[in-house]
Nucleic acid binder design. Structure first.
Lengths: 192, 192
DNA sequence: CGATTCTTTGAAAACAGTCAATCTGTGTGG
DNA sequence: CCACACAGATTGACTGTTTTCAAAGAATCG
């Protein structure tokens, strides 16, 4: 499955054969079975994780025991907890697999080293971060401006492939609404 | 007011005197009077803007004419529209000044050049982006997990200086609630 | 199958939004 | 210095949306 990562690199950056080898040599492939944790609340996250197979979610659990899904990650997406990685503090999030999955892990040290040694890698990383930020801003914009139905429609547009793949209740959570509300919204939408 | 920017650079990165001069030479100071636009919807944004004085907001206007505040920016913060800057598409946002303000503008070209020529600048930029992303993620987390009151309290904690500085109605908008609701929440809070 | 997980539905309650009116403080021009 | 205008904040009554809780119905997997 490292091939998936290699292909991603070839598409995203301009790497020489040697560089590609250096980068892929820096990753450790890890299998994460369905329901298994990649990260648990309280642990310190020390990697960058690239998903080569499957689907994972990042979520927190509040005082009432309710789960709040912050992110999904499928093939060719990055995941992890940047907050914990950067600050060295225990994570407030859990990451677990919604399907049998596989991730490519790069330790912080190797990642930094790659950034220093391979300019193209550094550029790629910046571009990814930039994109991630813009995606986050757009998501915030829908939170401040859109109602529940509109948020769902926007989710459908942006992530049609996720709709069939993750439980509705988690999509609801991702949108900041309850599973019941989402169910009702879908019912309304069918009528049209 | 360029001194503010220079001081920021000295604190954030490890620059030589020459580098500092190169960077500060690349910026154009622009005054923006209260109520004046720095960016208008439909225009393409072509800069990175660092606020040296005053306070600005980024907002959109929906079909009903309601304004939605995406961001505030005061001294030592960056602002602009990364989406428009990156894609070259017309911006969906307006940025205007809430007070008489001053910003340091760096064009995309000069910015890229600085990134290429001065590694320390590139590093600083990455760090800022990284931080911005984390802030955005945290904001998303409060949107999916917190009610109106909790969101306001969290705003108070994170931006106590902004509370006295920007109209309540805009804070409400930033939190994704109406001005009336915020007013009632504040009334409730006083009782405690 | 049988067990588990996920979704749907209903009714009541909590929450937030809307609209219109009033109040408050600030600044301006006469 | 006052009166007035204006923007922002507050309040009340009402409407609408979303949550909550509980139960029943699919769907999925071993």
């Amino acid at each position: 499955m490292i091939a998936v990562f290699r292909k991603y690199l070839e598409e995203k950056g301009n790497f020489t054969e040697t560089e590609l080898n250096t980068i892929t040599a820096a990753v450790a492939i890890k299998k994460v079975r369905k329901r298994q944790y990649l990260l648990q609340e309280g642990d310190v996250w020390k990697f960058n994780a690239f998903v080569t197979k499957g689907c994972l979610r990042t979520y927190s659990v509040d005082e009432k025991g309710i789960e709040h899904v912050l992110n999904f990650a499928v093939e060719n997406w990055w995941t992890g907890d940047r907050e914990s990685l950067q600050t060295g503090k225990p994570s407030e999030y859990n990451i677990d697999a919604l399907e049998d999955s596989e991730v490519a892990l790069i330790s912080r040290e190797k990642y930094d080293q790659l950034c220093r040694d391979i300019p193209a890698f550094n550029n790629m990383v910046s571009a990814i971060l930039e994109k991630s930020f813009r995606v986050a801003q757009n998501r915030i914009h829908t939170f401040i401006s859109a109602g529940a139905e509109e948020k769902y429609l926007s989710f459908l547009e942006k992530f049609p492939h996720l709709v069939m793949r993750v439980p509705q209740s988690m999509i609801a959570s991702y949108l900041g609404i309850t599973a019941e509300t989402l169910s009702r919204i879908r019912k309304q939408l069918v009528k049209k």
